[in-house]
């Protein structure tokens, strides 16, 4: 949260006059603040509090505070599952970037009258629930599904191949769902790209590769960072896609937490795992942030 800093996010110089925000400013901000308090701060505080509690046989919370949930959470099983989820999320982010950057660049450099239409095409999938789209993928990838029958009737395959219910299907599902979250922020950066900068790079003797890596990439870095975060963070905890398309034989951290909250009737333990996941996110955000500070 940059708050009242200048629009470009630059720091005010030391000793610059700072005005206390007026009452009107607070009033304008209040919906956001109330939103944050109710739906971010309060639930997070609840989650953390519950993670230190116990539960009875019906799953009701008993407020006896201790560390036993964390002792249990630091078992290799849960850490392994967490690392695997991070790995899938990382892979998803890298693939989304490889596919999303050229797409966003193309849209951002397209003639202006085309941009609106192209952007809308990126957003079209959001018009349908992601669950319905995931079920559609199940129909495409299954053994007697569209893709297999197409490949067989065209003579490319003789026997159907198992594509669904595999790590491949998990990553495909995640990339498909999160790709727009990579394209949109990068597009915003690309659109703002100053042509004069690129021309200057060429004038000063840079080849296309050098112009791209030394000028274009650094100028669009805010978009890349935002896109990476928007894809990476939700991919870790996503469990609907991974269970539906992966078949549930590779448990993910989101699924494990969900099951402790429901059939395990153990909210405190689920909350402890959730809190650990939150700490991973905070570390990831802090790393990107400090990286950016160093570059500035």
């Amino acid at each position: 949260m940059i708050g009242f800093a200048s629009p470009k996010g630059e720091r005010l110089p030391e000793g610059a006059p700072r005005r206390a925000p007026s009452l009107v400013a607070w009033l304008i901000l209040s919906p956001l603040l109330i939103w944050l308090l109710l739906f971010v701060v309060a639930p997070t505080a609840m989650l953390t509090l519950v993670s230190f509690a116990e539960r009875d046989s019906l799953g009701r919370i008993i407020w006896n505070f201790n560390l036993q949930n964390y002792v249990r959470a630091f078992d290799w099983v849960w850490i392994k599952i967490l690392l695997e989820s991070v790995y899938y999320a990382f892979l998803t982010t890298v693939i989304c970037m490889a596919l999303g950057y050229p797409t966003a660049y193309f849209i951002g450099r397209a003639p202006e009258r085309w941009r609106g239409i192209l952007l809308m095409l990126v957003m079209v999938p959001f018009w349908t629930s992601f669950l319905i789209r995931t079920y559609a993928w199940i129909n495409i990838l299954s053994k007697e599904g569209l893709l297999n029958s197409l490949l067989i009737s065209s003579g490319l395959l003789e026997e159907p191949v198992a594509m669904l219910y595999s790590p491949f299907a998990i990553v495909l599902g995640l990339v498909y769902n999160f790709l727009p979250f990579m394209i949109l922020p990068i597009y915003t950066s690309v659109e703002k790209l100053d042509n004069a900068m690129i021309e200057a790079a060429y004038d000063l003797g840079a080849g296309p590769v050098r112009a791209f890596s030394k000028v274009i990439i650094p100028l669009t870095r805010p978009g890349i960072a935002a896109g990476a975060m928007l894809v990476f963070v939700p991919s870790i905890a996503m469990f609907a896609i991974t269970t539906l398309m992966g078949g549930g034989s590779n448990p993910t951290i989101g699924e494990v937490i969900f099951k402790q909250f429901t059939s395990g009737r153990n909210q405190p333990f689920g909350a402890a795992l959730g809190t650990l996941l939150l700490i991973v996110f905070i570390i990831a955000l802090w790393l990107t942030h400090s990286q950016r500070e160093r570059e500035d």
């Binding site: 448990p251 402790q260 009737r265």
Partner: peptide, 18 residues
């Protein structure tokens, strides 16, 4: 009803899956 044992069997199956 198996009460608090639910969490344990959840852990057992998850461990074996992982």
């Amino acid at each position: 009803d198996i009460g608090t044992k639910g969490s344990d069997i959840e852990e057992l199956i998850t461990t074996l899956k992982a």
